[in-house]
């Protein structure tokens, strides 16, 4: 199957002080890198998951892919077209083909609009007023498992799970090729989480849409995604098939993340890799390997040399000087 989205060496920078202030303070580089050297691709009808803690740059990457943030370097290629150099009308066309599911189920719905207006707005915006919008609203609601009477409700009258379903319905309206889902289960109860994930899985099977999931919830990743990338301070630590990542993680950060996840079993055997300290801010990015300040296995050259990206097996890549051995999680 061909790739629907290809991202190569993407770098997203934010200015942190004005040019004048930077000159006055003698700062030569008044920018921070929120995303650095990100390369990945998403195939048709597959789910790609980006995992990272807060401040790792995962949402920034998603917004850059959607064309909402300017990129500093690198390319974003969607179905053969370059996104970073698109003009206005090409961008409008691109936005017909991608859609977002937002982190905040209720807050991402315009509060003064009824559900029916919200989910049919994509048609109006993209010049498809000719169809019967009421019928479309009911069709979309049905697709996400809501009955027709929800069409007259306002966002604040919906529960978290219902608002999330409306968000999904809205994302589906234009029959997109790619859905970007930022924390699709945030703020939902465990029993409702399952419903939303099953819905996404089912829609993918039925419609063949690709899904790009951004999350920090490791528990859901293995049930929804084909391939996974782990992000730390704007850089991909490890990337590969989800099963490979979960069964034989090689990057120390991936290992720490997976082992930190508490299991719902009081007698679980917890062999933990505990990380020292906290995530450093993007303002003072550590030299060499970004992870060395917290890595339990860091050695001298980790503090100085940026680790290269290495391939360990089929499509399984990582950036580390001392990757862990396969299936032997705690010793190098």
């Amino acid at each position: 199957m061909s790739n629907i989205l290809e991202v190569n060496n993407l770098r997203v920078r934010f200015r942190v002080m004005s040019a004048l202030k930077a000159r006055y303070k003698g700062v030569t580089d008044p920018f921070i890198d929120a995303v650095r050297d990100a390369s990945f691709s998403i195939k048709e009808a597959e789910t790609f998951t980006l995992v990272g803690e807060s401040g790792s740059g995962k949402s920034t990457l998603a917004l850059a892919v959607a064309g909402l943030l300017p990129t500093a370097e690198g390319t974003i290629n969607f179905a053969g077209k370059e996104v970073t150099t698109m003009d206005r009308s090409q961008m409008q066309e691109y936005r017909r083909n991608i859609s977002f599911i937002w982190q905040n189920p209720t807050g991402s719905l315009s509060p003064r609009q009824r559900v029916s207006a919200l989910i049919t707005e994509p048609y109006i915006v993209h010049g498809m007023r000719d169809r019967d919008l009421n019928a479309e609203a009911i069709r979309l609601l049905k697709m996400v498992g809501l009955s027709a009477h929800f069409a007259d409700r306002y966002p604040h009258q919906l529960s978290g799970g219902q608002a999330r379903r409306v968000g999904v319905a809205r994302a589906l309206a234009l029959n997109p090729k790619l859905i970007i889902a930022d924390e699709p289960t945030a703020g939902l109860d465990v029993s409702v989480q399952g419903e939303i994930l099953n819905l996404l899985n089912r829609l993918q099977d039925d419609l063949g849409v690709s899904i790009f999931v951004i999350t920090h919830n490791l528990n859901i990743v293995r049930h929804i995604s084909n391939r996974t990338a782990i992000m730390y301070l704007g850089r991909f630590a490890e990337q590969g098939f989800t099963d490979d990542i979960f069964e034989s993680p090689r990057h120390p950060y991936t290992l720490a993340l997976l082992s930190a996840n508490p299991k719902p079993n009081p007698d679980a055997d917890m062999e933990r890799i505990e990380l020292k300290g906290e995530v450093p801010g993007l303002m003072n990015r550590p030299s060499g390997c970004e992870f060395h300040t917290r890595c339990p296995f860091s050695a001298e050259n980790c503090t100085e040399v940026v680790p290269p990206q290495i391939d360990v097996s089929d499509q399984h890549t990582l950036t580390c000087h001392y990757p862990r051995q396969e299936n032997n999680t705690l010793s190098p």
Binding site: W102, S110, P111, E121
Partner: peptide
């Protein structure tokens, strides 16, 4: 600054429509 405005932008909604339909009523 709210998330729903960002959501409208991603959808490709024009600035005029965002102002008249989503910001003005609020």
């Amino acid at each position: 600054a709210s998330e729903f405005i960002l959501a409208e932008q991603v959808m490709g909604v024009s600035t005029f429509r965002i102002l008249s339909r989503h910001i003005l009523p609020n």
